[in-house]
Write a protein that binds this DNA or RNA. Structure first.
Lengths: 107, 107
DNA sequence: ATTTGATGTAACAAAATTGCAATATGCTCG
DNA sequence: CGAGCATATTGCAATTTTGTTACATCAAAT
């Protein structure tokens, strides 16, 4: 298990993603889907994370806004996505988050 | 030595401060003033950090812009300031930075 | 094939950020 | 005091971010 670091450019991109209250909340909610989201109707687990609809519901913001936020967090590497039928599931990308934290710790 | 954490509001404020390339650079430069800045004319040490002028010179940005950046970082708690005559010295606030990192590590 | 529900994209207005020039303030020294 | 330098503040134009409505796409199911 090696410690990995990321470039300043990536750090900036993630810092930008995490300088918005809703996006910071989303990252934290996804750390514990069981306590923060209702179980999904069709899938009985959170192995691939939480679908956009539920995140939207919890945030109180509009669907396009959340879609935009989620795709930005995905682009920054913070989230990974899986499509199951009509749903897109969003999950924390713990490896990237760990790299991010490793790097910040040296700043 | 207790581990301290900070509020989400503070985290967001610091993330915002650190989502700009120049401001991130400044924080890193101040970690090692000896290698990043010339010695100051009147003071022979970096005990209180580095004066705004030198930071401005290294950044390549205008004086008002750097003044604005530095006061934002100060307001966010990242930097502490000391006035020596006509110079304002800026130094990393390691306690706040540590709180910030402690908190991020739980996110 | 049509409908229904989840997601993505476009276009847009309001607000915040970026970084500059101009100006004001503060400090030191002759 | 007045000159000169460091810093702070103000005002501004350009750009980015925020979050909306309207619309397009995609998948499941009737």
């Amino acid at each position: 298990m090696y410690i990995c670091f990321m470039t300043d450019k990536k750090i900036l991109e993630i810092n930008k993603a995490l300088s918005n209250a809703t996006r910071l909340d989303i990252l934290k909610w996804l750390k514990d889907p069981e306590s923060n989201f209702p179980p999904h109707e069709s899938l009985g687990h959170f192995n691939d994370g939480v679908c956009g609809q539920h995140i939207k519901d919890k945030s109180g913001l509009s669907q396009p806004t959340i879609s935009h936020y989620l795709s930005g967090m995905h682009k920054a590497g913070l989230l990974s996505t899986t499509r199951h039928g009509k749903w897109t599931y969003f999950k924390r990308n713990e490896e990237v988050i760990q790299e991010y934290l490793n790097t910040l710790n040296t700043i």
